[in-house]
Design a protein around this nucleic acid. Structure first.
Lengths: 127, 127
DNA sequence: CAGGATCCAATCGGATACTG
DNA sequence: CAGTATCCGATTGGATCCTG
């Protein structure tokens, strides 16, 4: 993307919000780009998964944050929760249509991070 | 993207890290998806800008967070700082090659947030 | 198994004041 | 203009214990 192209597509961002404080899009953006939100959305892009599976996949997450993050994502309409009335309880989580949309945008970001993290963390990257 | 496609591209993510705790890519990812990091990278995709300009564009940011975030992004090799030895001082910030790479990935995300925030914030979105 | 409730430490982040 | 320094409240987030 050239700099002028970026400027063009950015005009919409500047006018409609995101950069503006108090804009609703900022809130949503913060939900999906939050540490655990991002990781859970990526993990779920593989398909429906249970609570315990998600806990392992999003390595290092606490029960509290797992519950809290899943709730926000569910409330935002990105994650679907399917609780079955059996003993022991079984609950499956999956992405909604919207959820798949974002995760499709998040995955390239994660891949970029993997490819660049080595040279970034070890020292200063080249311009 | 279908679910199997997602699974395929995800195998790399799962093996190489991101979902794994302590992975360096997680740190980088957190920097660029942090509240102000994200906003500054998007703002800078429009081109070189000064401190005072960035402060206005990333609406609501405090001086402390502006300085702190710019430093992290500069250290990560995403933002270039050009300080001119004049009175009054003039400092320009711009994206590096890497910086442009990420911002190109972040912009679609911001646009998605704008388009979906309305229906998300007002209530529950449809599946 | 899938959470809810609670406590507390660490970090985030804003307001203010000061400087080269 | 472009920061730095400090104080302090707010939020995040983990550990632990408890429950249907």
């Amino acid at each position: 993307m050239t700099e002028s192209d970026a400027a063009a597509s950015l005009s919409a961002l500047a006018t409609d919000g995101v950069l503006q404080a108090g804009c609703p899009s900022r809130i949503v953006l913060e939900h999906v780009t939050s540490k655990w939100g991002l990781l859970l959305l990526i993990a779920l892009s593989e398909g429906e998964q249970r609570w315990s599976e998600l806990r392992q996949r999003a390595d290092g997450i606490s029960e509290k944050m797992l519950a809290q993050t899943l709730k926000t994502l569910e409330h935002d309409g990105l994650v679907r929760r399917d609780a079955q009335a059996v003993i022991p309880p079984r609950v499956d989580y999956s992405l909604t249509k919207r959820g798949h949309e974002v995760s499709a945008l998040l995955i390239p970001l994660a891949e970029w991070a993997i490819q660049n993290s080595a040279s970034i963390v070890r020292g200063h990257a080249a311009p």
